[in-house]
Design a protein around this nucleic acid. Structure first.
Lengths: 232, 232
DNA sequence: CTAACATTTCGGCTATGACCGAAACATGGC
DNA sequence: GCCATGTTTCGGTCATAGCCGAAATGTTAG
């Protein structure tokens, strides 16, 4: 019979988004290297290493070495069972958790020229990506720079694939709500898919709006300098 | 499909010892009042109220009112399932968790006159209970004072029941390890049972020693002024 | 109506955990 | 042997969660 304290410690191990991400990656894939899990959780290697050490020490995961790589896996099926159980419980509680940003801070909608990210996120993204050189505003319109191509690929957006499609890659559209220009085109759509898969934003069913999560707000601020305030 | 973030939030809800205590109390008993859960978790009413509000908001528990009491219960069987799963996982990981106090700081053993709590805990308890008036050192030996009786009952130790048993209620025995007197008798045994159930101490299998947990160290310091240092 | 009980709210305090960059260490490829 | 890659360690920063007491609020018993 485990004590309340040790049970709480196991739950707390799962109770961090980065660690939870890693645990689910391991549940789904069976095993993964420290590098894989670092990218999956989107944290610094040092952060990932510390989390992996904690989960190993807590007995949730086990490690084997293969060359320079360390491969991790869940220690038992019971750990996987707990993750599934938590997933079921989480699915039945409030879908956006106790703390969310307000609804109308980012919108997604489809128009003639493809997906758009409007609102503060879309405008902020447009400004950030032009400002940091990812996108270039040239004579031929908006284009992706060479270094920008690499950065977007690192983020998980394959620019070449998007370019070979018939849809327009990039567009700047006037955003009446922010009185500025926001991002449109298939790149905007791909970015948004990426943000959804990272749980930076969540789609609102039956609406074009998306919800920026606290994790997303932190990521947008850090990566793109887009500031959001947590609201009640 | 719940997001990683919402799953981590559910797990984090369980990942606090006070909240976990309340959740398990509800799992075992079906329903309990806020006051019951406050005592169970051994926190201040304000702390308990805040925890209950969080778990309610997170969808883990639900509340109904009856007069001045608020009664809580788990919202679904899935929550109970997760708690059981966590219990199984915790039972198979390191039983004393990543951080414990050293083994030899308290010992429990049975002698001719009944249970003893020796070592620092036993000596500290004896001193504290005499010092705060719970126990009186009179001509008839060591006795429980009237106010001490109430205090012990509040702690969950039923002194009357112990007194009606044939075993010796109280004894002071010389503790060679601390060169002082420690507590013995059925009251010592009942206190120790109480501490185990609160996860303030844990028995070491195959040994008379017990382990003082960080929670226990905090409680002993606060309630009895017995200082422990957390060790590696 | 008042006192007692149950519970909540709020402001404040403190410990701690997550995060990271830089440096160090381990391993493999050339 | 050197360089690149993967990973860990360590010192430091900062946000936040848990805790509480005091006061406030709600309900009931007398």
């Amino acid at each position: 019979m485990a004590s309340i304290l040790s049970i709480a410690e196991v739950a707390a191990m799962i109770g961090d988004p980065a660690r939870a991400n890693m645990l689910f990656t391991l549940k789904d894939s069976g095993a993964a290297s420290a590098g894989d899990l670092t990218r999956s959780a989107n944290v610094a290697p040092s952060t990932a290493s510390e989390h992996l050490a904690k989960m190993t020490e807590a007995g949730l995961i086990a490690v084997t070495r293969s060359g320079r790589n360390r491969y991790y896996r869940l220690t038992t099926e019971r750990v996987a069972d707990v993750l599934e159980g938590l997933e079921k419980v989480a699915a039945r509680t409030r879908p956006d958790g106790p703390e969310t940003l307000r609804n109308d801070e980012a919108t997604l909608h489809a128009r003639g020229c493809g997906d758009h990210i409007s609102g503060r996120l879309g405008v902020g993204l447009a400004e950030a990506l032009i400002g940091n050189g990812t996108l270039r505003h040239g004579q031929g319109g908006l284009t992706v720079s060479d270094t920008g191509r690499i950065a977007l690929n690192d983020l998980g957006v394959d620019v070449s694939t998007l370019e070979s499609a018939p849809r327009k890659l990039l567009a700047l559209c006037h955003d009446w709500s922010e009185d500025a220009f926001h991002l449109g085109g298939s790149l905007a759509g791909a970015l948004l898919q990426n943000f959804v898969s990272r749980d930076w934003v969540r789609r609102n069913r039956g609406s074009h709006t998306v919800l920026v999560t606290p994790t997303g707000a932190a990521a947008f601020k850090k990566r793109f300098g887009i500031a959001y305030r947590v609201t009640a």
